[in-house]
Amino acid sequence: MTEYKLVVVGAGGVGKSALTIQLIQNHFVDEYDPTIEDSYRKQVVIDGETCLLDILDTAGQEEYSAMRDQYMRTGEGFLCVFAINNTKSFEDIHHYREQIKRVKDSEDVPMVLVGNKCDLPSRTVDTKQAQDLARSYGIPFIETSAKTRQGVDDAFYTLVREIRKHKEKMSKDGKKKKKKSKTKCVIM
């Protein structure tokens, strides 16, 4: 069974824990209790493949930012979460993405942009803004509501699919490099 290491990042209060708990335990946590770091595991079937999701729910508070490099190193894919009623959390996505790329030393890291709290009427981040940002990053965008469960499975499952595509691409690139290195030079 394939294991996928997913990391949920975003500013404090955007609903990272609520999304994760909704996926794992099928219930909505409405009281806000700032996370330092929590880890969850769940076995699911995605596109006919049974897999184990190892999900790291991270601290959004700035005082825990020193811990970010460590979990970013171990993560295979990242859910970059903002709240649709919090423009600052949307603007912060850029910083999370840049930090992930720096730590992973790669421009090509599996990510999904997630606009959470889409059940709320007080939207300050337009869907088109988020779609445009995701398009500019070359990553999928999904709106979710941890409260109603809308888009929750889709967000995590899409990230797994992005990781699969990335692994497939990397193995193809690896095979191309191996083929090239088999060419021999004969000096007579």
Rank of each mutant, 00 (worst) to 15 (best):
V152G: 07
K178E: 15
Q129G: 06
K184G: 14
E143A: 04
K128G: 13
Q131C: 06
I139A: 07
T158Q: 13
L133I: 09
S145R: 02
A134D: 06
Q131E: 11
Y157P: 06
R164Y: 01
K176L: 10
G151M: 09
Y157T: 14
R149N: 10
D153H: 12
T158M: 03
L133K: 07
S145P: 00
R164V: 15
E162G: 04
S136P: 00
V125A: 07
K177L: 13
Y137F: 15
Y137R: 04
L159R: 00
A134R: 03
T158F: 03
I139M: 14
Y137T: 09
R161G: 09
S136H: 06
I139L: 02
V125G: 09
V186S: 15
K167N: 12
K165I: 04
L159I: 13
K178A: 12
Q131D: 11
K175R: 07
Y137W: 14
K128N: 12
L133D: 05
V160N: 05
A155W: 02
F141R: 01
T144A: 02
K128P: 10
F156D: 00
G138F: 00
A155H: 00
K167G: 08
D154Y: 08
K178Y: 03
K165T: 03
A134Y: 04
E162R: 04
A155E: 01
K128H: 12
E162T: 03
V160P: 00
K165H: 03
V160M: 06
L159V: 08
L159P: 01
E162L: 05
M188H: 11
E168R: 05
K167M: 03
S136D: 04
A130Q: 04
H166I: 10
D132Y: 05
F156K: 06
R149A: 13
K176F: 08
D126T: 09
V125L: 05
M188T: 14
T158D: 14
K169Y: 01
R164I: 09
G174V: 04
L159Q: 01
I139W: 01
H166T: 06
Q129C: 03
V186N: 15
A155V: 10
D132S: 09
D126S: 11
K147E: 15
E162K: 05
Y137G: 05
L159H: 00
H166C: 07
D153S: 13
L133W: 11
F156W: 07
E162S: 03
F156N: 01
R161V: 01
D173F: 01
Q129F: 02
T127Q: 11
R164T: 00
S136M: 07
D154P: 06
K176D: 07
Q129V: 10
L159C: 05
F156Q: 02
K169G: 07
L159A: 08
F141S: 00
C185V: 02
R135W: 05
A130K: 04
G138R: 01
D154L: 10
H166W: 11
R149I: 10
D173V: 05
D153L: 14
K128W: 08
A155Y: 00
K175I: 03
D173I: 00
Y157Q: 15
K167W: 03
E143F: 00
Q131V: 07
K178G: 14
D154A: 10
T183M: 01
G151R: 02
V125W: 06
A134T: 02
K128S: 13
V152N: 10
R149Y: 07
Q150S: 03
V160S: 03
V152C: 11
K175F: 02
V152S: 07
D132A: 09
K178P: 09
A155S: 04
R164M: 05
M188V: 08
V186M: 02
K184V: 00
A130P: 04
T183R: 06
V152K: 08
D126N: 14
E162W: 02
T183A: 14
G174E: 08
A146S: 11
D132F: 04
V152P: 04
S181V: 02
Q129L: 07
H166P: 03
F141G: 03
R135H: 06
T158G: 06
K128I: 11
V160I: 14
T144F: 00
K184I: 00
K182F: 00
T158I: 00
V186T: 15
K176I: 02
K178R: 04
K178H: 05
Y137I: 11
R164G: 12
T127V: 13
S181G: 10
Y157E: 14
L159S: 01
S145Y: 06
Y157A: 14
D173A: 03
K128V: 12
A134E: 00
Q150A: 11
I142A: 01
K169D: 10
A130D: 03
K176V: 00
H166F: 12
D132C: 06
T158K: 04
K175V: 03
V160G: 05
D132Q: 08
I187V: 15
K169S: 05
G174I: 01
D154G: 09
Y157N: 13
T158R: 07
K172I: 10
R135P: 05
H166E: 06
S136I: 09
Q129R: 11
L159N: 00
L133A: 10
F156M: 14
S136T: 03
T158H: 07
E162V: 04
K165R: 06
K176R: 11
I187W: 10
S136G: 10
D126V: 08
T144I: 06
A134S: 04
K176S: 07
Q129I: 15
Q129H: 13
F156H: 00
E168S: 04
Y137S: 06
G174R: 03
M170G: 07
K165W: 00
K165F: 02
K172E: 15
D153V: 14
V152W: 14
L159T: 01
Q131A: 14
L133M: 12
K182W: 04
K178I: 11
H166K: 06
T127Y: 10
K172G: 14
A134H: 01
K165G: 05
K172F: 10
K178F: 05
L133F: 14
D126A: 10
S145I: 02
Y157L: 12
E143G: 00
L133V: 07
S145T: 05
K165Y: 01
I139G: 01
I142C: 00
D132G: 07
D126E: 11
T127W: 10
S181E: 15
D173K: 03
G151S: 03
K128L: 12
D126G: 10
D154I: 09
H166Q: 05
K167D: 12
A134C: 05
V125H: 05
A155P: 10
S136K: 14
K184W: 00
A130F: 15
Q131I: 10
R135L: 07
I142V: 01
F141D: 00
F156V: 15
K178C: 13
M170W: 02
I163A: 01
V125F: 11
Q150R: 11
D132R: 07
S181A: 11
K178T: 12
K175S: 08
V152I: 13
R135I: 03
T127K: 09
E162A: 08
K177D: 15
S181K: 02
K172R: 15
V160K: 10
I139C: 05
D154V: 07
S145E: 02
T148R: 06
Q131S: 11
K178N: 13
R149G: 15
I139K: 05
E162Y: 02
S136E: 08
K128Y: 10
V152T: 08
K176A: 08
D132N: 09
K169R: 13
V152M: 13
M170Q: 08
K165L: 02
M188W: 05
V160F: 08
V125D: 14
L159E: 01
E168G: 02
Q150L: 04
V152H: 09
A130G: 10
A130H: 08
D154R: 09
S136Q: 09
D126K: 04
Y157F: 11
D154M: 09
K182I: 02
V152L: 14
K128F: 10
E168I: 06
Y157K: 08
R164W: 13
K172M: 07
K177R: 09
E162N: 03
K176W: 09
A155L: 09
Y137M: 15
Y157C: 13
G174A: 11
K177H: 02
H166S: 10
R161S: 00
A130M: 12
Q131T: 06
V186Y: 01
G151Y: 00
H166A: 05
T127N: 10
D173W: 00
G174W: 01
T144K: 00
I139S: 06
M188N: 14
Y157H: 13
M170E: 04
T158Y: 12
E162Q: 10
I142L: 10
M188R: 13
T144H: 00
K177C: 11
K172Y: 06
D132T: 07
K167H: 11
K176Y: 07
K167E: 11
Y137A: 08
V160A: 08
A155T: 04
F156T: 03
M188P: 15
K167I: 04
I187G: 15
D153K: 14
T158W: 04
R135F: 07
V125S: 06
K128C: 12
L133H: 02
D132P: 01
H166V: 10
F156P: 00
S136Y: 04
K178L: 06
F156Y: 04
K128M: 10
A146C: 10
K172T: 08
L159Y: 00
R149E: 13
V160L: 06
K169V: 15
Y137V: 11
E143C: 04
K165D: 06
M188D: 15
Y137P: 01
D153M: 14
S145C: 11
A130Y: 15
